[in-house]
Design a protein around this nucleic acid. Sequence first.
DNA 1: AAATAATGTAAAATAAACTTGACATTCTAA
DNA 2: TTAGAATGTCAAGTTTATTTTACATTATTT
Lengths: 64, 64
Amino acid sequence: MKNKLKVLRAEHDYTQDQLAKAVEVSRQTINAIEKGKFDPSLVLAIKLARLFETDIETIFIYEK
Amino acid sequence: MKNKLKVLRAEHDYTQDQLAKAVEVSRQTINAIEKGKFDPSLVLAIKLARLFETDIETIFIYEK
DNA sequence: AAATAATGTAAAATAAACTTGACATTCTAA
DNA sequence: TTAGAATGTCAAGTTTATTTTACATTATTT
């Protein structure tokens, strides 16, 4: 699964740490997701989508 | 987190087993999600949304 | 150039998602 | 009214998401 987190974070001028706090996870979790080490939970994906005012599938791109 | 899986499944006339196979998880996983025992992974949520031709947050309702 | 901020990464631990197998209950049809 | 189908549930095990701690590297300021 690919994602646009890093870009969205840049657009909104957040550091990984700020974003982590905004969605209540650790900075390492944000980093790992950006780096594609794992996918977020559904709850985290929803929080991120709401924060960036977009929908989940705009941020997280899953193909087949 | 609440969800409308059971209703969507009824509308589309799927058994839990058929739905499980369609999204490639076990029947128990579908049952557990319907019963609110845990939330699906992001990938599973995406598969379900695509199958039912709707978006994730229409199926899975997270508040707060 | 030195200090500080931001990012990358890793190990160990915990929690949550998911599997398989098995059995019990409920619903539906013959 | 019994058989088969669908659903509910449980235990034990595996995998994946996430945490904490800690340190190394890369950017950005001063």
